[in-house]
Simulated assay, not measured.
Amino acid sequence: MTAPRALFLDFDGLICDTEDAARRSWSLLYASLGLAFPHALWRRMQGRSDGEQLALADLGRRLGRAVDPDTRARRLRTKTDLCRAEPLRPGVARLLENARLRGIPALVVSSSPRDWVEPHLVRLGVRRCFADLVTGDLVERHKPAPDLYLRALRHVGLPAEEVCAFEDSPTGVRAARAAGVACVAVPSAAGDAAALTEAVRVLPSLADFSFDRRRLPDPMPDPMPDPMKGSLPR
């Protein structure tokens, strides 16, 4: 692809590391019950809206009983508190400012609902940097299905090859690829760079992305996406 004419950014784990906050909330809950939170389970949960259900099912099996509502609510409160303490990830502000100076619109493309994403963007001082938010409450199928990206493409009125997406999880990368959008991956603190091989490039930070690169590798053809939904809550 040539230099992008629009940028699509995931939210959780990319703009703000709510992914790591979610992981820590589960680790703390498991530890309070005398258990270790399995890394393999977290890898399955990343980028999926049914992640909480996966963890609750695993925890219930280990405890030999269903997780009670008070325990679930306690974990969600911990996650909320941890997320509120998370700053912008490195390079986000610079990327958005460089896009603004070049007249390149940026959109959030997230499976999470708007009422989760927008308050955090306001808190972090970057809501004004985004032309629009394309969030999970607008579509029936979430990542890795391409629906959110296809909707974002319709919004900007550009072909997929003129847009660059940024994601932190394999689920998000697959969604972008399924829509024909080249995707640069930046793993979150709780992520795994080795699992992001489907991205056209894996960077340690958004600060490492350069608009001066005239081309990114074209995205590889993608198989039919898994219709399984993705992103929050976890």
Rank of each mutant, 00 (worst) to 15 (best):
A165Q: 07
A182F: 07
M228R: 15
R94P: 02
G47V: 02
E161S: 14
M228C: 09
V139T: 12
G103R: 13
S205G: 03
F11G: 05
A179E: 08
T71C: 12
P146G: 09
A36L: 10
D137H: 12
R174H: 14
L95N: 10
D212L: 13
D226C: 15
P159H: 10
G51A: 04
W116D: 05
M1V: 08
A195R: 15
P105A: 08
D20M: 05
D68F: 01
S169G: 05
L203S: 04
A22L: 05
W26Y: 13
A195L: 15
Y149H: 13
F11Q: 10
V173Y: 04
D222M: 14
L216Q: 12
V181G: 06
V108P: 11
A152S: 07
L59N: 02
M224C: 04
A6R: 13
D81A: 15
A22V: 02
V200E: 02
A21V: 09
V163D: 07
C183T: 06
V173E: 02
A106F: 04
I104A: 09
D218R: 15
S188T: 06
N98P: 00
S210L: 04
E118P: 08
D50W: 13
P38K: 05
L95F: 08
L206A: 04
G180C: 09
G172A: 09
D20A: 14
A152K: 12
F130Q: 10
D192M: 01
G34T: 03
C83F: 00
K229T: 10
D208W: 02
L216H: 06
M224G: 00
E97Q: 15
A199T: 03
P69V: 08
C129S: 15
P146R: 12
W116F: 14
F130L: 10
A93F: 03
D208S: 14
T171E: 01
R72Y: 00
C164P: 00
P113K: 12
L107I: 10
A106G: 11
L153R: 11
R213I: 00
L133K: 12
R44C: 01
G172Y: 11
M224I: 07
A185Q: 07
F209N: 03
F130E: 05
D132R: 15
D132F: 04
G13F: 03
V109M: 09
E140H: 14
A179S: 10
S188H: 13
P204Q: 02
E161A: 14
G172D: 06
A185M: 08
S32L: 06
R123N: 08
A57L: 04
A3K: 13
R84M: 08
M220Y: 00
F166S: 07
L56C: 02
K229R: 14
R154E: 13
A194W: 00
A185H: 05
V200F: 02
A160Y: 09
P217I: 03
V202M: 02
D168E: 11
C83I: 14
L33W: 01
L7G: 07
T171K: 02
G47Q: 03
R214C: 01
A165L: 07
R65A: 13
W26I: 01
E118L: 15
E118W: 12
E161G: 06
P233C: 06
S49Q: 11
D212S: 15
R100G: 04
R214P: 00
P146T: 05
V67F: 02
L88I: 04
T2P: 15
A106L: 05
P225A: 06
D115H: 15
A55R: 03
L14K: 09
R74N: 02
A6F: 11
H155Y: 13
